[in-house]
Structure formats: structure tokens, C-alpha cells
Amino acid sequence: MSIMDRQNWMGLLARARPADLAALLPDLPQSQWLRPPEVGAVMVQGRTGGSGAPFHLGEITVTRCSLQLTCGTVGHAHVQGRDRDHAHRAALVDALMQTGAAADLQARILAPLARIETDARAARAGRAQATKVDFFTLVRGEDA
């Protein structure tokens, strides 16, 4: 497991719709809280002119938690919104992905979540592309 792999699945779990994750992981395996789900805020920064010095744009609600599986593996979650079950499931998958169950979870949970996300993004991008302007120039009087 590389850091990048873990970043990828933690990001995917955080962006997933809570209902989609719940449908893919209905039963919660045993675990112990290291930090039970807590709702808070993260201050989001933008950059002046899109690329310059940072400034504070506004906050976003976030739920975080940490847990430990019975085997001792630790999982963390920071997910947008105030859904404690979402954070709980994300932390469980984060922990399980560090165990022997990783391949199974990848196929059963992460791959479907990635597919849902890719499809939703493509559908939106497709709608946006349909509103792209095709300019054409009319023949001007002096050219005729």
C-alpha cells in the first residue's frame, strides 16, 4: 500500500454519497472507537487571482472519526458534511483496506464507488459540452 493508494481511497470515500456507501457496506464489522464521529468545520482557502496568495474563503462542515479493528488496524476518516454513519463507514473501509480484505473490498466497494463517481462526472461534463458555443461568422456586406 502506498500513500497515494490510501489518499485515493480516502478521497473516494469522502466524496461518495453516504447512501451509495451505505448500500455497498450495509453491515458494519466490529471496531472500537479511538475518536468517535465528531462534526466540525474546516476553513477553506482560495488564492488571489486563482494562483496568487491564499485567503480565507469560508468554511465547510466535516465529520471525522478514528477507529481500530479487532485485529488492531487503525482507520481514519474526514468526510464532508455532518453524516456520522458516512464517517464511520469511511474509517472502517480505510482500516480494512490495510488488511488482507483489501482486494475483496477494492472489488466490492471502491470499484463500484469509483464507477458511480466517474459516471456522474461524465454525465455532468456531457451536459456542459452540449452547451458549448459553436461560433460562426456571417458573411459581411463588404465581403459579398
Binding site: 465528531e38 462534526v39 466540525g40 468545520a41 474546516v42 476553513m43 477553506v44 482557502q45 482560495g46 488564492r47 486563482g50 494562483s51 491564499p54 480565507h56 474563503l57 468554511e59 465547510i60 462542515t61 466535516v62 471525522r64 474526514h78 462526472r121 455532468r124 461534463a125 451536459r127 456542459a128
Partner: peptide, 18 residues
């Protein structure tokens, strides 16, 4: 709400534009 932290500045050049 407790403040968990401050984000990395968002990259609007990578925005998925509507």
C-alpha cells in the same frame, strides 16, 4: 463547530466546470 483545520488552497484551474 470546532475548527478541524485549514484546507490547502483550492485549485480553481482544476475546476470541473459546469
Amino acid at each position: 463547530l470546532p475548527r478541524f483545520g485549514t484546507s490547502i488552497p483550492v485549485d480553481t484551474a482544476r475546476m470541473r466546470v459546469d
